[in-house]
């Protein structure tokens, strides 16, 4: 995705280029997975350590588990829609619009959540405890996923409307995008499961 080798100087076949791009994206997913691991590790480590009773201090606020699931629902919906859309390459433009809208809604929802965080201390603007800290980190990563996915979905929407785009390679692009969309949906579910255990 990030590298366009369609008319690359060494003229590889679209099939080869497509596979290679998907491989590249999957390796980057490993990196993103490690990022996710570090966040989840942080969550459970601080939760179990509960230094100075600071995970959720006395009188502290939390988000409900349901709100965590709500914020990642669009990720799952979009990934499923994209999977279906991929089967019918001619209709991909329409499917991608749904995907794009789902991501945009998700980003909006996440932003809305983040701007209404209950656990910021009024006077100091500090976070109440380590639950609050970790929550905002995970939400931020989720937000990053939404924005990046919206960019890709927007590209797919625009490109589907352009006749000039090579359909063979585009089919591979859909599969490559699918790898990423599926991964961020999985990552979202992992985050939601994690933040359910308050």
């Amino acid at each position: 995705m990030s590298s366009d080798t369609k008319f690359h100087v060494h003229h590889d076949a679209p099939e080869v280029v497509g596979r290679r791009e998907r491989l590249g994206v999957r390796i980057l997913i490993v990196a993103d997975g490690s990022f996710l691991f570090a966040m989840i590790f942080t969550y459970f480590y601080l939760r179990n350590l509960n230094v100075n009773d600071g995970w959720i201090p006395k009188g502290g606020h939390t988000f409900s588990a349901a709100s965590g699931w709500m914020s990642i629902l669009p990720l799952v919906v979009a990934a499923i829609v994209h999977k279906f859309g991929q089967r019918n390459i001619k209709q991909i433009g329409n499917f991608s619009i749904i995907t794009l809208l789902a991501y945009l809604y998700g980003a909006y929802y996440q932003f809305h959540q983040m701007s209404n965080m209950p656990f910021i201390v009024k006077d100091t603007h500090a976070f109440e405890g380590s639950y609050a800290s970790t929550w905002v980190l995970i939400a931020g990563a989720n937000m990053f996923h939404y924005i990046l996915a919206a960019f890709i979905a927007l590209g797919l929407v625009i490109r589907a409307r352009r006749a000039s785009v090579d359909p063979t390679l585009e089919k591979w692009r859909m599969r490559t995008a699918s790898s990423w969309f599926t991964w961020i949906a999985i990552a979202g579910v992992i985050c939601a499961v994690t933040t359910s255990m308050i």
Binding site: A38, F41, T42, Y45, L46, L49, N50, V51, N52, D53, G54, W55, P57, T124, H125, A126, F127, E128, G129, S130, Y131, A132, S133, T134, V136, L137
Partner: peptide, 21 residues
């Protein structure tokens, strides 16, 4: 920047977390 408490033991953080990561 945002006064979170990942490593601040006064608000539930831990320096060990940093060392692990």
């Amino acid at each position: 920047t945002f006064l979170t408490g990942f490593f601040d033991s006064n608000v539930g953080g831990s320096g060990w977390l940093y060392a692990h990561l």
